[in-house]
Design a protein around this nucleic acid. Sequence first.
DNA 1: CGTTGACCTTCCCTCCATGGGAATCTTCAG
DNA 2: CTGAAGATTCCCATGGAGGGAAGGTCAACG
Lengths: 142, 142
Amino acid sequence: MNIGEVAKAAGISTKMIRHYESVGLLPPACRTAAGYRQYGLADIRTLQFIRRSRDLGFSIDEIRNLLSLWQNRDRTSREVKALAKEHLDELEKKLQELLAMKKALQHLVSCCQGNHRPDCPILEELAGDSNHLSMTGLSLSP
Amino acid sequence: MNIGEVAKAAGISTKMIRHYESVGLLPPACRTAAGYRQYGLADIRTLQFIRRSRDLGFSIDEIRNLLSLWQNRDRTSREVKALAKEHLDELEKKLQELLAMKKALQHLVSCCQGNHRPDCPILEELAGDSNHLSMTGLSLSP
DNA sequence: CGTTGACCTTCCCTCCATGGGAATCTTCAG
DNA sequence: CTGAAGATTCCCATGGAGGGAAGGTCAACG
């Protein structure tokens, strides 16, 4: 199979397949005499594994580890779980950061009248004239 | 004031201050005869505005707009609120994506025994052998 | 056989926000 | 005068994706 075919089958662009090969996620593909990459069913399975891992937010490095565990029959599920747990913690951390941003911004937006007048608590807060948040505990510069 | 001084005062690295100037967030600073950038109190205020905006996740482009509204006395709070609301929606979207990842991964992690044996529902799901999620509605490839 | 169009190759550039580091110059205190 | 701290510019890297150019290959159709 040519690269375009596996790309469709795995739901990954040809660009990214070449990229994954270049960073060592995929072993270098066999080539035809003309230099075309050749793939088999196993490669599709690997690429789908990669895509699903990306869908869960794993980084290239983490996927490298996941792949090697997947292909290693002597792995223990403990190792896999540890890797997943670590990523889960990263996700949770980002989630909390986003949540904090969202809450603060939500508060500001709700305070803003959104009318024709120029005075705006959002700009005031960004400018540091923060009296209006001082009693909400939502101050940005604690 | 030299760049290092404002950097400390505003809580932004000198690198980023130069960068912000290069992308037009900050007007080009005046220079001494030797070429050193010179800043005043207004610049610190602007930089703090930028930092607080970044803390809320606004992009450079969005901050450019916020700054011009801030400095424009003919603005309406409606414009500011619209900008903030738009960003809030982006935040919400990312939040939902992260949440979906987290939930799916959390489920997988909770299914994994994490012991010395090699069989692991996490790897099975990533590999596409998904029977165990089929009844939870958490399938990754719907 | 020739042409055409779809596909493949490599190479370089872009995004976004941030930082590292080198080479060189300026300023200030001792 | 010397040395350290701080400035300057310039190039490079990150991560995960994509754009696009210049050129080679393959298959089908007339």
